[in-house]
């Protein structure tokens, strides 16, 4: 260990830090924590409850939710219809007002985060504007947020290419299939590069083949950008395939049953679904869903 050249010192820096050199700064608590995507907190939810006032009786949509989502995570909310997963996501995005509890998004209230345009929301339906062609649909948020014309065009072209829709810029929504429309809406959500991507059963209305294809594409989009994604679904295999963590919810009142960390690697192909590891995670999700369910009521 006498002649160590600078290059090898650099490349081996991590492994050659001697134990005796004092406490190395821990990335998670240091001042640079924000730059560490896997460590800093994106969403913090404490004691959240939400009750809808209906004509006959109040409906408890969410009850005492606690959840922390770190930056760069892909978190799925899964549960049967009426378990409040969409409502929880809407509360995060300031589209629904909680009755009690606290939400922080990047240290801000959901409202402040919304005013800062932190949310890229993909709905169950594409919600494209029928009078705008594909590229102008993608440019819609950019127009609203005051991007320059050249920037708008560049970004729309970039994100349309990313979802595999180059060549379709001048088509109108009615000329596209459901899967293509949903991809336009994903490009639209990505175009203004929001901190958070919120996806509410975006592929729920599509056939399974298209859904598989789009799931794979979504992972390919997510891997390099490492955006924080919240994904609502009621498909176990979709949740397990996509997520780094799966939040299992149950209805009446909507609450979190279990939060399952996925042991699967971040980079995955569709074939991962046949591995024992995948099946094991899927089974844990299924058991958790089953535990929270008694259909006898």
């Amino acid at each position: 260990m006498k002649t160590i050249d600078a290059e090898s010192l650099l490349t081996n820096a991590a492994s050659t830090v001697p134990d005796s050199s004092g406490p190395a700064p821990l990335p998670s608590y240091g001042p640079d924590a924000r730059k560490m995507p896997s460590q800093s907190v994106a969403i913090e939810i404490r004691g959240l409850s939400l009750t809808f006032q209906t004509a006959d009786a109040p409906v408890v949509a969410l009850s005492d939710i606690d959840l922390t989502v770190r930056q760069g995570e892909f978190v799925s909310f899964i549960g049967p219809s009426g378990c409040g997963k969409t409502t929880l996501m809407r509360a995060i995005a300031d589209l629904a007002a909680p009755t009690a509890g606290h939400i922080a998004v990047n240290g801000m209230s959901p409202r402040e985060a919304r005013l800062k345009r932190a949310y890229g929301y993909v709905f169950q339906a594409p919600a494209l504007y029928a009078w705008r062609n594909v590229i102008r649909n993608v440019m819609l948020p950019l127009e609203i947020m005051g991007f320059t014309s050249t920037e708008r065009k560049a970004r729309a072209a970039k994100y349309l290419a990313m979802v595999g829709l180059n060549g379709f810029e001048r088509k109108f929504p009615w000329q596209l299939s459901g899967g293509m429309q949903q991809r336009v809406s994903i490009a639209r959500a990505l175009a203004f590069e929001p901190d958070l991507l919120l996806m509410d059963e975006p592929f729920g209305a599509l056939d399974e083949i298209t859904r598989d294809h789009l799931n794979e594409q979504l992972l390919k989009l997510w891997l390099p950008t490492q955006k924080t994604v919240i994904f609502v679904t009621h498909s176990i295999s979709e949740a397990v395939f996509l997520s780094t963590r799966i939040v299992v919810m149950s209805p009446r009142p909507g609450r979190i049953l279990e939060i399952i960390d996925s042991s699967l690697p971040r980079e995955r192909a569709l074939a991962v679904r046949e591995t024992p590891q995948f099946l094991e995670v899927a089974q844990r999700v299924r058991r958790a869903l089953h535990a929270g369910h008694s259909y006898d009521e």
Binding site: R114, F123, M145
Partner: peptide, 12 residues
């Protein structure tokens, strides 16, 4: 529809 309006809301 409500989704188109919600979209505008998320864009502030």
């Amino acid at each position: 529809d409500p989704l188109q309006l919600d979209l505008m809301r998320t864009y502030n």
